[in-house]
């Protein structure tokens, strides 16, 4: 995966969050406080403002800038979580101009580890971690197969889609949705949904 594809990924992601703003907010209205789409759109609009300043730097610098920007503009629970995700992901691929499948795995693994440390989610808590944990497991089993990043992402996308749907029957135990108790069952987690868009959009950017 070359740097230009990462930049393309980020630009597409900004568009996707703008298109899905109301949908993400509606998901959050059902089990949260109706701001997730607004938060993500605000964050990626800021990322688009910052991107020209670092577009010619290495991948790590770009990813770290995305993290710092999200951290200081998203707010809510997803701000520190996504901020840490991109920041830690960037730190894991220091100095690179292109990412191999192994680099990509390291980046995602480090980012997801950041989410785990920050939010301390357990599997099944109905959070974005329930999307990422199976994705990391699937990436690990495939990353050594000789696939490039594009093939790898295409291969794990169905895993992500299933993980996303699997958040629906869960009862939330973390975040605002946990206050609903059993009433959180039957709704898809907004954070897992915005995380799914990251992979879906990456798949499109690499196609």
């Amino acid at each position: 995966m070359h740097k230009s594809q990462i930049l393309d990924w980020l630009r597409r992601l900004d568009q996707v969050y703008t298109e899905k703003k109301d949908y993400l907010t509606d998901l959050d209205a059902a089990i949260g406080d109706a701001d997730h789409g607004i938060n993500m759109t605000r964050g990626f609009a800021k990322v688009m403002e910052k991107l020209p300043e670092v577009a010619d730097k290495d991948i790590a610098t770009i990813l770290k800038t995305v993290g710092m920007t999200l951290m200081s503009s998203v707010g809510g629970a997803s701000g520190p979580l996504y901020g840490t995700f991109w920041l830690k992901g960037g730190l894991a691929v220091d100095g690179k101009e292109a990412l191999s499948a192994e680099d990509f795995l390291r980046m995602i693994e480090a980012g997801v580890d950041g989410i785990r440390q920050r939010g301390r989610p357990e599997p099944g808590d109905k959070t974005m971690y329930d999307l990422w944990a199976p994705v990391v497991a699937a990436l690990k089993t495939r990353a050594g197969n000789g696939d490039d990043v594009a093939a790898l992402v295409a291969a794990i996308l169905p895993v992500a889609a299933k993980a996303l749907a699997d958040t629906i029957p869960l009862q939330a135990r973390k975040g605002r949705a946990s206050y609903l108790g059993e009433r959180s069952i039957g709704h898809q987690d907004p954070g897992a949904t915005s995380s799914y868009y990251m992979l879906e959009t990456l798949n499109e950017a690499l196609a």
Binding site: D35, I38, M71, S72, G75, G76, G79
Partner: peptide, 12 residues
Amino acid sequence: PGEVFTSPTPDQ
């Protein structure tokens, strides 16, 4: 102060 009903950010 954050946005309405949204937590503020660490830089603030």
